[in-house]
Write a protein that binds this DNA or RNA. Structure first.
Lengths: 146, 146
DNA sequence: GAGTATTCGTTGCATTTGCAATGAAGTCAA
DNA sequence: TTGACTTCATTGCAAATGCAACGAATACTC
């Protein structure tokens, strides 16, 4: 018994393509972050942000980095346990936490960032002049989510 | 004590951007698939493929749809439990499983596909003529993974 | 043909996730 | 001030994930 189904091209389905590509890039990176630096992707994102801006709170990071607050919280705790950042409750508002990188954390970033930069450069090379088009299109997609 | 860290622009970091955007689109879609059709993303991908090609095996799908075989296996089992497809062991090679959509499965696809198509159309509208550029760039990124 | 290696699908298990609930702290209005 | 609401970070828990191990079936090699 043959069943008829409407046409649909999964290969060209944008959400699918984006998910697959992003997933591969992420998995790739995550592997390196883990094996070479001992941290997870969420930890990397949190550490990076704390590295740049002193005294960020969990909520600040949640908004900046598109991570759920529970993820941020756990990532921060792990980074703290590893000695890469410190948590201090804010004196002004004692609900808030001020996250700050330690020297160890800064050292780690000094190794992580060139690695990420290198990866970016590789992608840029692949994309050539298409890179701006890509970013332009991604801007439009970002705007999609209101 | 102030700590110096090399410059890095996370906002413009391509893997990050892709992950965030893909994640938002996926989460969005997953919610609808779940609430309106009662299936997960992996199940949707599996169902779609089985809908088009009769007798696919788990491994076939794994390759086609970028899902780990354990994910495919579990998705297939759930779809079977819900009555959307059947598993039959291949006579030629009894390690293989032949997956086939049931009438119920086909009916579900008839509802799912227009939904997905509509979503795609919305994205196309947002992107306008940038759509081809985007796909072109994604092609290049795909080629990246060897 | 016996023995080894490979392929396929499933499952166990530790880890990660998303979400809701919690408790502590702050805000606001009467 | 008191009491109702909101905000913040953490945590519990159920579900999803990734990976390795397993048993069954087939392919390969001598």
């Amino acid at each position: 018994m043959s069943v008829k189904v409407p046409e649909f091209d999964l290969e060209g389905y944008l959400p699918y393509r984006l998910t697959v590509i992003a997933g591969q890039l992420s998995a790739d990176l995550a592997k390196h972050y883990k094996s070479e630096f001992g941290i997870s992707m969420p930890e990397w994102r949190v550490l990076l942000n704390v590295g740049y801006t002193k005294g960020l709170s969990i909520r600040d990071i949640e908004k900046r980095v598109n991570l759920e607050k529970s993820k941020v919280s756990r990532a921060a705790s792990k980074l703290e346990a590893k000695g890469y950042l410190t948590k201090i409750t804010d004196d002004q508002d004692r609900r808030l936490l001020k996250l700050t990188v330690t020297k160890e954390g800064a050292k780690l970033l000094e190794r992580l960032i060139p690695f990420a930069q290198e990866f970016q450069d590789k992608l840029d090379k692949r994309l050539g002049d298409k890179i701006d088009e890509l970013h332009g299109a991604l801007d439009l997609l970002m705007a999609t989510e209101e």
